[in-house]
Structures are given as structure tokens and as C-alpha cells.
Design a protein around this nucleic acid. Structure first.
Lengths: 300, 300
DNA sequence: AAGACCTGTGAGTAGAATTCACGCATGCGA
DNA sequence: TCGCATGCGTGAATTCTACTCACAGGTCTT
């Protein structure tokens, strides 16, 4: 029997990631699993080798020298296999993948990240399509779609959960002080959208806060309300994902933070990711990028 | 995300073995699983890479050049990990492992294979102990035991199935012609043992054959009856495992072959194989060696 | 023509991996 | 000094993968 000392191979990835981050929680995030799963796999590996691979300090996890050494070997070995697989695997067939996405998320989240996509997934050409609601892969010639699970998904689609929806009021920084006063959001104009008319109601229901506005205004899309909010017209209610970059740049603030509304965004695909290397790569990239939306504790 | 092309790691071992043997069935035997399991894992890998890795000819399986290439890389990568693990893993603590085994199996199967054990599992010192029946790890200071499942095993023991018991009459080659005549085994002396007094009854029940002997003789152990049989005293009933080497050398023949009696041999161990590298190695070696007992179509 | 041999596959299952929810220890900020 | 946040371990429940079993289909052997 070859490889008599070979530990269980499924423990290697969690282990390597844990050493690299010196943290199980971080490794778990990278692998899109819970820290418990990583913890158990690392324990498996330790049990299999008969030695301890980490110094468990209360706050930090310190890989032992042996662990570093093993991790380096594993990293190297997996690199080789990865390279070989890449060389061998099906050459990406021609034709771009078409990805359908809600217009606002498209404009304020996905498009700004296209350069990153081009760098990290260079072989896959993407065609973007703004759209929402029910997905018809065949009819609309769509390969992938990002959708919120507020309607039933087609049975045959393969789905991957991306991130939880979190909504909250956003406005220009100088308006924020007025909002947090006793009168709350009632002081200023509320900005509504046609595409998600219930957004403010949802928020009121979830937070229990009142919002009797001085005036109201309805615009077609979230991204228009964001424009208006940034211009100081009033307060918009926005998903964290679409507001994120503006918050980071300081163009908007979210005085009340964001709250989950119970829905999540999913990636729907015609073929399962395993069947098509391009779909798999794109899925991996999206999962990676969106996981930060999940884990961000947003600036308040 | 690292390793974007990395296929599922658990598919790699079955794949590598399949390429090496150019056969799924052979790979399955090596890995102690069914060919179906290997088939599915290979399919997983192919699906993940998007290419076919074998030319399925009806009788033979021909790995494609890509498959050979990938398998070589995998082999190499696993070698590295194996070596690193070996270096790191707990240095074998002092003190031999004690293995308890039925006297006959010990003398006629295990002891002849000790040289092979010494070559393939050099780091593990073994202490052998002849014994049967219930296993008391603590009391008898036993680490491992090979036992037939004709009595309940201790609950806490970790068990690994080794091979199915098959029994059959054996005798000196020149006696065989007399046996296969109309009179059957009735012509010659039947050799019994104290340790398995029901063996002949079992065989009669299973095969439906008659065995009214001219005379009978009882000896203490199977290996004594085998001695007697080889000396031409009569016909002994023996497990295939203990008769195997004598059959191969031509000292005995089994004119009626061997039939499963429904029981199996198991390896019982105090610690689970994963917890102790020595136990794991020894278990692997035993599984490997005993699998041929399972798969042999014995010489008739 | 029958049987041996090898792989693929649908259905059912056992066991592994994962999640969930909680506990514990500690550092950190108010 | 007291919450509070952070990070890991873990029992129990759940989900899901890998496996087995039994059978089918094809071809080579005798």
C-alpha cells in the first residue's frame, strides 16, 4: 500500500487555510463553511498524525513549526495538482457567459468590480444583462442570474446562496444629525422606488421605528434614489450591497445601520458549477466577493 | 481564491489507483471499496475537469495521455505530503504492539508473513499472542486481536472486517482421487479438531454432502490436523486461510474447494486506527494481505 | 452458446461533514 | 470593573456525500 502515512486528504484544505490565516474562523470564511467544520477537520488531521499542530491560545491560534512545514508542503503539492488540472481541463469554449442581475445591484456593485473580475477570472468572458423577477434561462438566453429569494426559483436551476439582504436608510452625511434626533426620519423627505415599493414598510416593521415623512418622492430604481440621497434630497432606503461603496467613500452614511429583511441573494445557473469550468470560476469569484457583504460590520 | 482549478481532492486517490492499474476493479481492491465507488469518483473527477480521462473499451480501460500526466502529478504531490506527514507524525513510541490471534491462523498464515511485515512496516514492533474467544484488551494487555465473528465483540473496540471464512476438506494429493469417487469422503478417516468441533457438520450442512467416515480422529488444533492430512492420515476440514500456503506448495489439495460458512474475520483494536500511527499501519498491512484471501479463487 | 470479466447506474443506506447553538476563556473599551 | 466582542471547542441534529448492492450491457473466452 502506498502512502501509509498519508492523512485524510479532505483535512488538508481546511488545515492549510487555517495555517495561512493563523485562524480557523478566517479559514472557514475563505472556504465558506463554519468555524466548527474547520475545527473538526483540523482535529481529524491532528488525531491522524498523532501530534498537535496548533498552540491554542485563547485569542490567537499559533501554528507549530511542524504545522507550518506541513502546510508549505501541502500548498506546494496542491499547486502542482492545480496547475496540472488547469493545463488538462477543458479549454474554455468560445462564447461569453450571460449574467442577469437586478439593475441597481448591477450598476452599484457588480460593474465597479468588473476590473477585479477581469484580473481574477481572465479566461471567462461575461455578458451582463439587467433584469429582475422570474428567470427563464432558455427564453432569455441567460446562463446565470443573481436573484433575491422573494419568489420561487425554477426547480431545475442549480443555486448557490450568496449573501443576506440587509436594508437601511442612507442619506448625505450632513443630514444624518437631523435624523437621529427625536423626530427621527420624519424630518426629511423619504425616497421610494418603484421596484421595491415595500422597502420602507419592511424596515419600519423590522425595526419598529416610525417614519412619518415631511414629504415623499418616488423614483424608478434604487440607484436613482441613491443619487438623490447623495444630492441631499432626502433619505433613501437601500440594500447594503448597493450602498456599500458610497458609504466607504463617505458620500452617504447609514445612521441606523442595516437590518436583515429575511431574504437572501442567490446565484442561479443553468448548468451546475461542476459541469462547466467557467461557471465554477465565476461562482467562486462571486462567492468570494459577496462573502464580504455578509461579514462586513457596516460603518454606522 | 487559490487553486481555482483544483478538482475535488477525494477523487484523486481512486483516480490515481485506477490509472496505475488501468482498471477500476483493481483500484477498488487496492482501496478496499467496490468498483462502483471508484467508478463514481472517477466520473466526478472527469466532470470536474470537463474532459474524459479514460477510453472505455469494453474489456479494458485505457487512461488517456492527460490522465497519465495528471496521475503522475498527483502521485508526486501525494508522495510529498506523505513524506512530510511521516516526518512530522508522532515518532513511534517504544513498546511493541501485542496482537492476539487464533493459534492456527497464527502458525499457518501470520508467522509465514512476518518477513513481509518487517519489510513493509519496519517501524512497528509486534508481539504475537496465541489466543481465541472473548477479547479483554486491558486484562490481557492486548492491543489488537484477530477474531472470527462467532461471538459478540466488545462494544468499545474499533473493528475492521478482514475476510470471510471459507472452509473445505483438504488432504494429501494422492488421496484426492479416492474422495471424488462415488463414496465421497466416506472412504477415509476424518480429522477433527477440539477448537472447532462443528466444522465438519457446518460443511455438510452448507454443501449438502455426506461424510460417513470409515474412521475418525480428533486433534487439538487445525494445524495438527493439517499435519496429519499432509501425512496421509486422512481428510481434514480447514479454513482456506490456514490451508492456503500448503495448497500452493502442493502439499495438500482441496478436492471440493472451499465454501463460505457465513462468518468473517475481524481485526479488533483498543484504539481506533486513526489515533495511533502504528495501529493504522498494521491495519493497512493486514487489510492488504488478507484481501487476497478474499479474492483468491482457490486452486481446486 | 454459455460463462467470465469489466464498467455503468438506479436505488437505498451508512457514515461523514456540516451546522447550530451554546459554553468557555480572555482581551478590550467604557 | 463590568459588560461585550472575539475565537475556539463541542454535543446534538441534520444534511449530504460516498458507498454498497444488485442488475444491465457489452465483449472476450472456451
Amino acid at each position: 500500500m502506498r502512502w501509509s502515512a498519508l492523512p485524510p486528504v479532505n483535512t488538508l484544505l481546511p488545515f492549510e487555510a487555517t495555517v495561512r490565516h493563523a485562524s480557523m474562523t478566517a479559514a472557514a470564511q475563505e472556504l465558506h463553511v463554519t468555524h466548527g467544520a474547520v475545527s473538526r477537520q483540523v482535529q481529524n488531521l491532528e488525531r491522524s498524525l498523532g501530534i498537535s499542530l496548533f498552540e491554542r491560545q485563547t485569542r490567537a491560534l499559533r501554528p507549530t513549526p511542524q504545522a507550518r512545514q506541513l502546510a508549505a508542503v501541502v500548498r506546494d503539492a496542491l499547486d502542482q495538482i492545480d496547475a496540472a488540472a488547469r493545463q488538462i481541463a477543458q479549454r474554455t469554449p468560445a462564447g461569453p457567459l450571460t449574467l442577469s442581475c437586478e439593475p441597481t445591484l448591477l450598476m452599484r456593485w457588480l460593474i465597479p468590480r468588473l476590473p477585479d473580475l477581469a484580473v481574477n477570472v481572465p479566461d471567462v468572458a461575461i455578458h451582463l444583462s439587467a433584469g429582475g423577477g422570474p428567470v427563464f434561462f432558455e427564453r432569455d438566453n441567460i446562463d446565470l442570474a443573481i436573484r433575491r429569494d422573494d419568489f420561487p426559483f425554477p426547480e431545475e436551476a442549480s443555486r448557490t446562496r450568496l449573501f443576506a439582504e440587509r436594508i437601511g436608510p442612507v442619506c448625505r452625511p450632513d443630514l444624518a444629525t437631523r435624523l437621529t434626533g427625536a423626530a427621527g426620519v420624519s424630518q426629511v423627505a423619504l425616497l421610494h422606488t418603484d421596484t421595491r415599493p415595500k422597502a420602507w414598510d419592511d424596515w419600519r416593521r423590522i425595526t419598529g421605528m416610525k417614519a412619518e415623512p415631511a414629504s415623499q418622492q418616488t423614483l424608478e430604481h434604487f440607484y436613482l434614489t441613491l443619487q438623490a440621497a447623495a444630492a441631499g434630497v432626502g433619505v433613501a432606503i437601500a440594500p447594503y450591497a448597493v450602498a456599500r461603496d458610497d458609504l466607504e467613500r463617505g458620500q452617504l452614511v447609514a445612521p441606523f445601520g442595516f437590518v436583515p429583511d429575511g431574504t437572501s441573494y442567490h446565484l442561479l445557473s443553468r448548468q451546475s458549477p461542476e459541469q462547466d469550468g467557467r461557471v465554477r470560476q465565476l461562482t467562486a469569484w462571486l462567492r468570494d466577493k459577496t462573502s464580504q457583504l455578509e461579514n462586513d460590520s457596516e460603518p454606522v
